[in-house]
């Protein structure tokens, strides 16, 4: 499990302070941390445990239970591929093989250039336009291997604004 530096820890302490008074604050805190630093650092768990008056084991238990929370720094783009039945009916098994082969990684892995992390997801609610993938907060529908390559190209092309 990965850790974060002192500056990151201070940032996390601040996040915990902002949320700890909520009823059932654990998930809101974990979401806020992951949104801020992209993962739940190992050395943040004692801080959460102390703030919520639970054991470190309990914090670890919650983090490890939910698929959404990760304990390693992900790549710049997290690509989630839907494995639900609706997407299967529209060729997602072929798509997931093509994506794995294109990125040369399997699920739960990050590409060696730290660009992409690949995760399975069970339904994005885009089932009228299957198969679907999610990158960041963008959901793409009717994806086939060709469309995936275009999406990938768009991700790596930066538009420069000239002033």
């Amino acid at each position: 499990m990965a850790v974060i530096n002192e500056q990151g820890l201070q940032q996390i302490a601040e996040i915990i302070k902002q949320h700890q008074m909520l009823a059932g604050a654990m998930l809101p805190i974990l979401h806020a941390i992951q949104n801020s630093v992209a993962f739940i650092p190992d050395n943040a768990m004692p801080l959460i445990a102390k703030a919520l008056n639970v054991s470190r084991a309990e914090v670890h238990g919650v983090v490890s239970f939910y698929h959404h929370f990760r304990t390693e720094k992900p790549g710049n783009h997290v690509i989630e591929v839907c494995r639900g039945e609706s997407c299967q009916a529209m060729g997602s098994r072929t798509l997931e093989r093509a994506i794995k082969s294109k990125l040369a990684i399997d699920y739960h892995q990050t590409s060696s250039d730290q660009q992409y992390t690949l995760e399975p997801v069970y339904c994005l609610g885009n089932c009228a336009c299957s198969p679907a993938i999610r990158i960041g907060d963008d959901i793409h529908g009717e994806v086939d291997p060709g469309k995936f390559e275009q999406i990938l190209d768009a991700l790596t092309t930066y538009s420069l604004e000239l002033k």
Partner: peptide, 11 residues
């Protein structure tokens, strides 16, 4: 928590 594949009415 509409998790069933093939459903999106809640969303």
């Amino acid at each position: 928590d509409e998790g069933d594949s093939g459903t999106f009415a809640d969303r």
